[in-house]
């Protein structure tokens, strides 16, 4: 489902210094896998996530998503792919303030070209994360764990093939973290591809496969037998 071939990413810092963040990543992730990508901070983890999530383009290499070459696509096509195939979950939730849980979850549906019953779909996504009774609440009226569950509902609502979570438990207490991790596991059991980007070993350990990165390269790829 995801094939990265010799992906590189280079940033030009001020003063013309080139920083190579990714230095030839080769990686294949199959449909329905539950994968953790681990890396120390500043080692290209976010860049990886942005490239896999089609928010950013690699400097070099090939990226096939569902067999489609993504590298070199234009902005509109990338937006469509993000809308249809990818659901993001962020460390800081990234919900819109002063906006109800329901309206937050509706967001991806608004940009869908399909004719959908937006309200009904958003409501059932919230019910799926156990927040059916919180549809009218604003983020400021919800706990951290609830906010992250709203964010997961938002990531799910367009029925994406890939859930991409960046330190999803980084801002949560341990009880909320477990709730959120349980939801990811359930999503995986439902057949979705889940990629967790994290630097916490305990979180990474809950996935079936752990990919470790260092200095912009994959240093280990470990599958755990279930």
């Amino acid at each position: 489902m995801i094939e990265l071939r010799n992906i590189t990413k280079t940033y030009n810092k001020d003063g013309g210094v080139e920083v190579k963040v990714l230095q030839g990543i080769n990686l294949t992730i199959g449909r329905g896998e539950f994968v953790s990508i681990m890396a120390p901070s500043g080692m290209g983890k976010s860049t990886m996530m942005n490239i896999i999530g089609c928010l950013d383009q690699p400097t070099g290499g090939e990226y096939l998503l569902d067999g489609i070459e993504v590298a070199g696509m234009n902005d509109d096509d990338l937006s469509s792919i993000r809308n249809k195939k990818i659901g993001f979950v962020f460390q800081s939730f990234n919900l819109l303030p002063r906006t109800t849980a329901l309206e937050n979850v509706e967001l991806p549906l608004i940009y869908s070209p399909d004719d959908l019953d937006i309200k009904a779909k958003a409501k059932s996504a919230l019910e799926a994360v156990g927040l059916g009774d919180r549809v009218g609440h604003q983020p400021s009226e919800l706990s951290g764990g609830q906010q992250q569950r709203v964010a997961i509902a938002r990531a799910l609502v367009n029925d994406p093939t890939l859930i991409l979570a960046d330190e999803p438990t980084g801002n949560l207490d341990s009880a909320s973290s477990q709730e959120v991790m349980a939801i990811f596991k359930k999503l995986h059991l439902d057949g979705r591809t889940v990629i967790l980007v994290t630097h916490e070993p305990e979180v990474a350990a809950q996935a079936d496969r752990i990919i470790r990165m260092k200095d912009g390269q994959v240093v280990s790829d470990e599958r755990r037998a279930n």
Binding site: D76, S79, R82, K84, F88, N94, L107, P108, Y111, S112
Partner: peptide
């Protein structure tokens, strides 16, 4: 900015 970024992440085109 953040709102715009979030919208873009979930599929809003520049035109939207």
């Amino acid at each position: 900015k953040k709102e715009i970024g979030i919208r873009r992440a979930f599929g809003a085109k520049a035109r939207d």
